[in-house]
Amino acid sequence: MSVFLDILASVGMWEAVLRIATPLILGTLGVLLCERVGVLNLGIEGIMTFGAMIGWLTVYSGGDLWTGMLVAALGGAMFGFLHALLTVPLGLSQHVTGLGITLFASSFSYYVFRLAVPTASSPPTVEPFRPLEIPLLADIPFLGPVLFNQTAPTYLALVMVALLAWVLYRTPLGLAIRMAGENPHAVDAQGIDPIWLRIGTIMAGSALMGMGGAFLTLAAFNSFFPTMIQGRGWICVALVVFASWRPARALLGALLFAFFDAYQLRLQTVVEGVPYQLFLMLPYVLSIVALILMARRARVPQALMQPYRRGER
């Protein structure tokens, strides 16, 4: 029994929770933003793949790490724009368009990656973000190394949670965004064009997804390889339902999720006789369980998946 507790008492375990949570936080906030404005964005899996690839490629070809993050955000926004163009003014099926964006963005990423790195048996690496020790605070026993010895993008992700919550609930822009997801006609009556509002918000959300992907190649690992996103995007879509479309709960969901993931990774090494695949299934099964628990209770934005056309009801 003590093995299970030993893991919980280790600093490394809790440090890993925040690290594993970071791409999930960024991705979940991205999905949340898109859905709050009324559009499902299943492009996330591909957008994260593209962010991971283009962020890595930028640094690999000589850019610095923050330029890599920025390029990943811009790349995400670009695919977000494509998704928005098809789903908002044209009003095409958000399910199918999103899947199309995912298939296109991921195969495009692999294509560009293979062009840049034609023949490498092991993927080339870059020098990733180093943990940024916050003076004084990092010296607090246990909490210090867990909370204040993370990489810079992790701090950024936490700031984004607060920033997004503030924008959504405390600014006119946030009010308009939430209204567009509940009743776009009301937004239009206020003199704000819901079409452009939706396009812009989807681009911002997709930029967050791109950064979430880039975190994987620039901080969590140091190289890119195909299929590295491993369904993290889909997990983010599930986490948004679990979070009932609220940023603070999205953070909680991502942390909870990362906790189980970090725990199972460590259990794999100490528990014998249980096939490792069962541990690896855990994140996906947990996401489904989270969906079951919240499906009826969650407050879905009323206009989610309803295209807006002026003069049509």
């Binding site: 299943l42 399910h95 491993q230 369904g231 889909w234 997990i235 879509v237 599930a238 339902v241 096939p275 695949q277 069962l278 690896l280 299934m281 996906y284 099964v285 996401s287 489904i288 969906l291 079951i292 499906a295 009826r296």
Partner: peptide, 22 residues
Amino acid sequence: FGVDEVVTTLLLNFVAVLFVSL
């Protein structure tokens, strides 16, 4: 339960491949 099947079918793809591996 009213769970949207898009996400669950997507997630089950990963579970199925891991089950095959197992």
